[in-house]
Nucleic acid binder design. Sequence first.
DNA 1: GTTAATTTGTTTAGCGGTTGAATTATTTGA
DNA 2: TCAAATAATTCAACCGCTAAACAAATTAAC
Lengths: 390, 390
Amino acid sequence: MESGYPVRQASVRAHNLALVLRQVAAAPRPPSRADLAASTGLTRATVSALVDDLAAGGLISEVGPAPRTGAGRPAVGLVLNGYGPAGLGLEINVDYLAGCVVDLSGTVRHRLVLHGDQRLLGPAAVLDAVAGLGARLRAEAAAAGRVVAGAALAVPGLVSGAGLVHRAPNLAWHDVDAAVALAGGPLGDLPLTIDNEANLAALAELDADGDGLDSFVYVSGEIGIGAGIVLHRALFRGARGWSGELGHVCVRPDGPPCRCGALGCLEQYAGQEALLRDLPAGETGLARLRDDAALAAGRLPAAGTSLGVALAGVVNMIDVDTVVLGGIFGPLAPWLAPAVEAELARRVLTSAWSPMTVRASALGPAAASVGAAGAVIRDILAEPAEWVRP
Amino acid sequence: MESGYPVRQASVRAHNLALVLRQVAAAPRPPSRADLAASTGLTRATVSALVDDLAAGGLISEVGPAPRTGAGRPAVGLVLNGYGPAGLGLEINVDYLAGCVVDLSGTVRHRLVLHGDQRLLGPAAVLDAVAGLGARLRAEAAAAGRVVAGAALAVPGLVSGAGLVHRAPNLAWHDVDAAVALAGGPLGDLPLTIDNEANLAALAELDADGDGLDSFVYVSGEIGIGAGIVLHRALFRGARGWSGELGHVCVRPDGPPCRCGALGCLEQYAGQEALLRDLPAGETGLARLRDDAALAAGRLPAAGTSLGVALAGVVNMIDVDTVVLGGIFGPLAPWLAPAVEAELARRVLTSAWSPMTVRASALGPAAASVGAAGAVIRDILAEPAEWVRP
DNA sequence: GTTAATTTGTTTAGCGGTTGAATTATTTGA
DNA sequence: TCAAATAATTCAACCGCTAAACAAATTAAC
């Protein structure tokens, strides 16, 4: 009751198509048309018609009847079509490029990672490289019989809806129009969305977890610290899409100066550079920290406390019940999580009667590229009407 | 495309009724049926049918044709029916009770405020008193020809959807079931919602401002500090409805202890008690602060800085572009706002290319009661279908 | 002062989409 | 072999919107 647009019969059809498709996607086992009628509240007649449309559009397919118990005509199972439209996810990060192709059911079918410091190249060269990586993945998918229907790109920075990267401080990017740059390349024919890396990683976490998660803050520890906020299984973007700048939440008003110009930002206490002070940068330094228990126990709890202070403020304002530690914080969670939990328990008002959960991400590196591909799929599943009649 | 429920023709009707009604409410001058057809995208035939339903339901009425320019049959103007269902708003605060009745057009028709320290009475007595105040207002409204269709109650604390007040620290309330308590009183026959005081005050601010505001944080300075967050003209409630606990966002991890048990909460730097240290409490102290320029300039900027530090974190995470200072902060804004603005400019990443606005609330005291009554009206306007055919 | 132009609002046929009941299809169990 | 049970389809009816024709009420023009 919010849209601001008139609703006609076609909108009814579009809504109910999406409703049925969502049930097919969410069901633990392939549901029959009768199951869908029961779970959606529509009549079997209507469900049959909707299912016909979705199947004709290549979004769902029938599977052999499951072994039934009891009498009656056996049900025909319905599943998302693994050979329907696929999503291409791409990720630009400070020290790697990544990409993957995901089918409608959410399964990752192809993936590629290219390591290398992207700060050494200019934005144009990096965008060229990621487009090339995407084109390779698209060709692989085509060889396997899958058509990529759209792409999404994750960037560690602030992105406006139109694909303009306002700031990517750790890449030293500034007002880079990634959408225009990619429109000319080998992916120029695909619908493309560009989003913040933490947002897309949070979506990947949501998809990976199945049904356990409903609302959470995903903390993305990379060179910087970002956050993706999921509320009721939907990404929360704030007013203009620039939400989740956790790295620049203040921990101490008079703390050390930050690259952003302010004092005492969280990044100065728990960012990768702060954690690896006096250690080799990048993977090797992280490995040292992970493997040397004394070293980890010496510096990670303090970082966890700072993280907890910042997150407590977030949770007091946004009211989620779960924090997921991702990126480099995932493997370091055994040392970080207790301190984070302690601060949340002290500082979050609602924790008195509704305790917080802090856990490590279920995802490995390059989570954002998986989330990006999943975002393409998510859009198709949310608005299947465009696919059923070309 | 989110609802999870099937959509039928009746839902189409319900949606389009709301669409038309919203246009009538939002139009600067009484629109004609033809205007509504143009602004909604529906045909004139459909709009006529919808308008007939809304008028039969008592939600809108016709006004004499406006003086037209140019040729053509004169248009019949449509307005919200000032004698349609009205909303009753109630507010419990630490040092007063308040209530008002608002008609469909949002005009306040009756209001009452009872001063007195509510901490001296138990929850049951306070709820009795506020119900009595509501009953008086309802009788006044009935005498003027208006029927109260629902009520909303604002409470300075954390409220769950069912009307349970988990905590109202400054009233010393704890697990008070206000919904049950009021169900037995003189308002027991009205649909009642209970909500946080800052949330409802934020809605009042939204209604009062007309079209200027889209997304903002309303900071409610009372004995404690709360916040109501509005995104795209809708209240943001977080995952479970317990958002906006700005008073307990951390300013300094090792600051003075707070009533909540944590250290360095914003309330310790900018709450009413901190501002009035060594001054008489309540109105008289505030008046001294407001009238003694040297006193105000001496202590308010530091409080503003603390407010700014906390708000910068909020804005970095939630991405709104406006902060509204309400409650006791409204009259003190001349001394507070510059410091708040300075911190936001330093600490909010997006302020580099999209500056923040800080302003005083347009509302006087007891804003939450007006917002509560407005919330009742808001619900009616959002779902008029229930009123159209009993 | 009559007529044409113009704009508002209503009427009516048609169409898309859902419902509900009847019908067909396919299996198990007696 | 037949009855019971469950799945899926068919078809008439209904509801709400659209489009186009029509009726109503006013201004502008001659």
